[in-house]
């Protein structure tokens, strides 16, 4: 996929955002008898965003001002997706099984390739517990140990 194409997709996304927020904004009073109402700003912001999105799409269609950043492919893409996925695993396990399990699994996942398996697990358990003590005991921020599962 070329960068211009991704630019167009992003432009359409921003355009959609602008249109949706413009529609929502009309629900808030645009003008009250005393002055501009709560809808005044959102309407203008959404409106300008729509114009900007269209200009942005046009720029990309003409191939002008296209981002020079490369989108990741192959191995790089896999690595980015892997981090996003491991964060999601952390999130879901945190909800289901609490912090300790989630933390160890998450860290082991990201350490797996870099360290021998037992180093990875020990390192993960160590770091997870240090943070547990830091947050629960020093900062008194309660991190759940159990989750929805047990």
């Amino acid at each position: 996929m070329t960068n211009a194409k991704t630019g167009i997709i992003a432009g359409v996304a921003v355009l959609t955002l602008g249109i949706v927020s413009l529609i929502i904004s009309f629900d808030y009073g645009y003008y009250s008898e005393i002055g501009p109402g709560p809808g005044f700003f959102p309407v203008w912001i959404s409106g300008i965003l729509i114009v900007l999105a269209i200009l942005y799409i046009i720029e990309n269609l003409r191939g002008k001002n296209v981002s020079s950043e490369e989108w990741p492919a192959g191995q790089s893409l896999k690595q980015v997706l892997f981090i996003i996925m491991s964060l999601l695993v952390f999130f879901v396990l945190f909800l289901l099984a609490g912090y300790i399990v989630a933390g160890i699994v998450f860290l082991s996942m990201v350490f797996w390739k870099e360290y021998k398996w037992y180093v990875a697990v020990l390192l993960s358990a160590g770091i997870t517990l240090i943070f547990y003590v830091l947050f629960n005991h020093l900062l008194k921020v309660h991190l759940p140990i159990g989750g929805m599962l047990f």
Partner: peptide, 11 residues
Amino acid sequence: RGLIAAFIGLL
């Protein structure tokens, strides 16, 4: 692009 970022921030 800068303005798009700015207006999304405002929104």
